[in-house]
Design a protein around this nucleic acid. Sequence first.
DNA 1: AGCGAATTGTAAAAAAACTGTAAGCGTAGA
DNA 2: TCTACGCTTACAGTTTTTTTACAATTCGCT
Lengths: 220, 220
Amino acid sequence: MNELLYIIEDDEGVQEVYESAFEDFYNLKIFSNGKDFFEAFNLEKPDLIIVDIMLPDMDGYKIISDIRQRDERIPIIVVSAKTDELSFVKGLNKGADDYMAKPFSVMELLARVKAGLRRSKLLVKHQGDFVIDKNNFRILYKDKNLQLTPKEYKLFSYMLSCNGRTITREELFKEVWGDEFIGETRTIDMHIAELRIKLSDAGADNVIQTVRGIGYKVES
Amino acid sequence: MNELLYIIEDDEGVQEVYESAFEDFYNLKIFSNGKDFFEAFNLEKPDLIIVDIMLPDMDGYKIISDIRQRDERIPIIVVSAKTDELSFVKGLNKGADDYMAKPFSVMELLARVKAGLRRSKLLVKHQGDFVIDKNNFRILYKDKNLQLTPKEYKLFSYMLSCNGRTITREELFKEVWGDEFIGETRTIDMHIAELRIKLSDAGADNVIQTVRGIGYKVES
DNA sequence: AGCGAATTGTAAAAAAACTGTAAGCGTAGA
DNA sequence: TCTACGCTTACAGTTTTTTTACAATTCGCT
């Protein structure tokens, strides 16, 4: 949520189109030229970039190549008013992921941005020696798949994301089960026990610590 | 870059036209008859084929059919001196993608070749041994048409495009059926089962893996 | 230290959920 | 009309999740 888009577009009219199309859904930064763009890009990486090929100070193709040299994976969408389809081919060859001809519909734009973000979204998160692979609903310990069941995955990824903080049983019920805490049951304990076994099998001992009377925490 | 074109044309004067038009941009091989062409074609697949329909040893339409039988997707441009439109229609029906009447201008020729190459690049996506032919709503495995129904095509092309990521049932419903997940139904499973049969028949086993409790993924 | 209540760990059984597959139904198009 | 397609239903086989029952541990209190 709240992805950051960089847009390189010199036409103010088109800039407004972008703004009205996206402002409700994404954070936008619009640059009129390549120089401004790269200044910002050096400080902060966006989640997706839209490039108009025809720019005043810089060749759009050059921008694409330069982006790709610094980052292999940020999705780039090429936009061009050229009806000549070859310009798109050139853009794609330079490393763009998708293309769109002006004039484009707002719907199409949103769809392509969404698709681009989905494709590339960084769905792998590191927590110490653990990797949460949201793409495949897996958690790895030192590159070894823990082979968790769906419930275990949901439970442990939540615990990992808590960064060492102690998590109450009530909170776990609410976050993982979506329920209110109903009362006495050993359900959580069971899953914790199972997790501990799988962690131990993978060589990770003492990862989940019980906080008596409160809940559990994961050593960060 | 450096695409390879095969041209089947018996008139030496026209051969020279092709040579001068293309030699700066593409690699060319020109054949005067169908026999020579297929000898070469069996060894090496070009990126695009230009066929003159009127040939000494072989019917041009027959050549097109034969090409299509061996390769579903290489773009074919039909050339004919016949002004008769019917001959073009016939060529297109046999599997050609575009047509051109003699005499043609070099500009037109270049434009059509460019367009043909572009289409084959943009509308045909490769994923490992699979080819998604968006032009014809087909998916090929090792150049063999899987003969999918429309729903199967939509489903499998979406799955292929996910690049090995695990796809949830909810996501499949939303993306392929355009629906919210309605609840318990075996619809997805049925289509997966059907896909698996067709894939297996084509020699592609273990392509779709089930991720229990989550959904499916296609091995990348 | 010893006791007892509260809490947690664990194993096995029970219940629920999930997937694969076969069979059948309705519908749209040839 | 017949066929191909998409979908539903039913059910078996399996895995996952929860419950149950009991053992073990912790901790305050005397």
